[in-house]
Simulated assay, not measured.
Amino acid sequence: MAWEIARPSRASALHGVDMAGFRIHGDGPAQLRAIPHPAVTVVVEFGDRCFDVRDSEGRSHSGSLALGLGSSPSPVRVEAIECVQVRLSPTTASAILGFPHAELSGKLVGLEDIWGRDALRLRERLHESRSWPERFARVDTMLSARLREDHRVDPEIAWAWHQITLSRGRLRVEHLAARVGWSRQRLWSRFTAQIGLTPKRAAMLVRFDHAVHRLVLGHPPAQVAADSGYADQSHLYRDVRDFTGTPLTSATGEPWLAVDDRAWPSSTKR
């Protein structure tokens, strides 16, 4: 398949928002996987919609959609797609999507079900746009217009998420709870309700994301396992299979991971 990838020339005006543009086409349908990533993903489609994604319950979705933090890959059947993909920090997602992020955890939801006619109007405007910079600007304007301060996560939860990402998933829940002055149970409960994953599972996802991108770049598995805080290579292999549904040798060739250094360069600098 041929992949055209575009990046904005400047960062979004909103904190915790990153965007990339995709135009994918080929001679026939291709089976891909959307690999779990430590961000809420919003896809705004504006082409012929020759693709579909299956959720964890086997239901098929096509068109613009939102995907919450998850623990398993989503099969994607692609013939052709044109879209702007947005990655939202889970500390920002609720304020932009307009409802608790936990309700989206591990699920695929049509963007029209979340934004109503705004989603349709945005799709039409992207379709009419003549360039990627114009499309990125339109998406950024929509995200800014929908931002609701009253849906932001607790400052303690935002801090805990930041520490998890900063440590690349190597902090223990007890340490985080002690730093914010909460009990382990309270942090576990509030974090899960607002982020959509338990603190432990969120840390596992962040650690996996860091490790798998190093593997894609060709780093030796033994070194990646040691540097990423895994007990041994077997532990790393289990996590890769858990999150990708394939063994390590296959996972490192997954197209969505292989293009990350072009689509999301800031997140693949290891």
Rank of each mutant, 00 (worst) to 15 (best):
L120R: 03
R135S: 08
L104F: 07
F136R: 07
D140W: 02
V224C: 13
E174K: 12
A226K: 09
S131T: 01
A102Q: 05
G196C: 00
S105F: 07
G229S: 13
R152T: 13
Q233D: 13
D118V: 12
R152F: 14
A137D: 07
D242H: 11
F136S: 08
R152I: 11
R207S: 09
V212F: 02
Q233M: 15
G245N: 06
A158D: 07
A145G: 13
L205I: 06
L126I: 08
Q223H: 14
F243C: 13
H127N: 04
D113K: 07
I157N: 01
V206N: 12
L122S: 05
P221N: 10
I164G: 00
E112W: 06
P221W: 12
V139Y: 03
F243Q: 09
L143D: 05
L147I: 08
S144E: 11
R148G: 05
L205K: 02
V109N: 00
R138P: 10
S105K: 13
A119K: 03
V109S: 02
R201A: 15
P155W: 15
R201M: 11
Q163I: 05
W132H: 02
F191R: 15
A177P: 09
R123Q: 11
H213N: 14
R207N: 10
L187N: 06
G181K: 07
R172G: 08
S144M: 10
R138M: 09
H175I: 14
F191I: 11
G218Y: 14
L111F: 03
W188T: 13
D232T: 06
G218C: 09
R179D: 12
L215E: 06
F208D: 14
L197R: 02
D232N: 15
L176R: 01
Q194M: 03
L108E: 05
R179N: 12
W132P: 01
M204C: 14
D113Q: 02
F208A: 04
I195W: 01
Q163F: 10
D232G: 10
R152E: 14
S105T: 12
D140S: 03
A119Q: 03
G196I: 00
R190I: 00
W182S: 04
H219A: 15
E112C: 05
A203L: 02
L236N: 03
R190T: 03
W161L: 15
A203R: 00
W115I: 08
R238T: 09
A119G: 04
A225H: 05
D118A: 11
W159F: 11
L166V: 07
W115E: 04
A177G: 09
A119S: 14
E124N: 07
P199D: 02
R152Q: 15
S234W: 13
S131W: 01
R146L: 07
D113M: 03
L147K: 14
V139R: 04
W132Q: 01
V224H: 10
V109H: 00
D232R: 15
W115Y: 09
V173N: 09
L236T: 05
R172K: 13
R184E: 08
G116F: 04
G169M: 01
Q233P: 00
H219I: 11
L236F: 07
V139F: 06
E156A: 07
A226T: 07
D242W: 11
I195T: 02
H127P: 00
L143Q: 10
R170I: 01
G116C: 04
E156N: 08
L108F: 05
R121E: 13
Q233F: 14
M142R: 13
E112A: 06
Q185I: 08
T165N: 05
R138A: 14
P199E: 05
S105C: 12
D239H: 13
